[in-house]
Write a protein that binds this DNA or RNA. Structure first.
Lengths: 183, 183
DNA sequence: TTATAGTTTCAGAAATTACTGAAAATTCAG
DNA sequence: CTGAATTTTCAGTAATTTCTGAAACTATAA
């Protein structure tokens, strides 16, 4: 691995975390190396940096592009494909949240929607379905909230985050103004 | 698999989603079967329901307990261990968020904290470190926000979610009252 | 104690996932 | 077109993860 000591530590860390984040080591490492690179890299640069096969890099880049965490760019007078990560960390944050929702939440949400349409056959099914209904309600709410958050501007989101728990006081105030919520 | 058709569909879905959520199929299925069960189950009940080995169930239960998504309970006059999922979906939501943060975010946050202490060796390292600083800043902010959210009561969190994007209007209002944020 | 019920551990087998190298496909300059 | 440069695909292999059955361990009843 042909990287400065600090860069190498970063890349190795991302490789190790990969499995917890649902990608394999190489994918984590490719992302890391692109994230800290001062300019876009081509696939062979990545092969050199990581010491993995060309085909592995090709597959990893494809996966990262499907997550929209990496995009292809071109350099004038060079046929090769170059790759970079979006530079704005807020953009990355949104993208990641959106993709995670699509892959980890949506399928279950639509499964539950389906399952709730069925007529329960007996008491056990009636109980199971009631639990599913609770789960659906919560996921649906959280999901919609993510949708809303997603539409906020980075600045608004940032102030929201910086407010932190104080938001609850603002909320209480707002609730007082308009009665007790929307129920 | 000895379950009603609806329960079986639910269990199979959780098994399939397991890998996306970072657990194996059996762990996902065990969680599902406990979630919809009307009362706590013992390990052999789970073996019967899922048709996997006793040892696999034992390991899966251990993992789910480490996630605090399943807890052990006892029945009067029965030596066997029984297991149940927390019934309150909001509690489950918090627990999951907290555990995910601990496993998926904290290690990177502390890696970055460390890496930012090093003196950069050259320009490339200086640039890499600057990118890491940006990443650290964002993760730290989001992390602290999750901390704050975590401390809200389920009711407050629920109203916050139901407000959705409207929160930004409240925020703007609050910002007007107190100048432009905290900078 | 000892016997029994219940649970966990763990080495090896089975299944799955990741990775490679070679071949195929694509792109583009000449 | 042709052919060189580049990228992608894919079958086979390597590595990793999951699962099992047997043995070890623990707790309790008699």
């Amino acid at each position: 691995m042909n990287l400065s000591p600090l860069a190498e530590r970063f890349v190795l860390h991302f490789g190790e975390m990969g499995s917890r984040w649902g990608v394999n080591r190489t994918v984590g490492q490719i992302y890391a190396v692109l994230f800290i690179a001062p300019s876009p890299l081509n696939a062979d640069d990545i092969v050199d940096a990581l010491g993995v096969s060309r085909s592995n890099v090709s597959m990893g880049l494809k996966e990262l592009q499907s997550w929209r965490l990496v995009r292809m760019v071109h350099q004038a007078g060079d046929r090769r494909d170059y790759f970079e990560t979006p530079k704005d960390v807020w953009e990355i944050f949104r993208t990641l949240a959106e993709e995670k929702r699509k892959r980890e939440i949506e399928p279950t949400l639509s499964f539950l929607r389906d399952a709730l349409m069925d007529a329960p056959g007996d008491d056990a099914e009636r109980h199971a379905q009631e639990k599913m209904r609770q789960m659906h309600e919560l996921i649906d709410l959280a999901n919609g909230w993510f949708d809303d958050i997603h539409e906020l501007s980075p600045q608004t989101l940032e102030s929201l985050m910086r407010m932190g728990a104080k938001v609850s006081r603002v909320l209480e105030f707002a609730n007082q103004l308009r009665g007790v919520g929307r129920e």
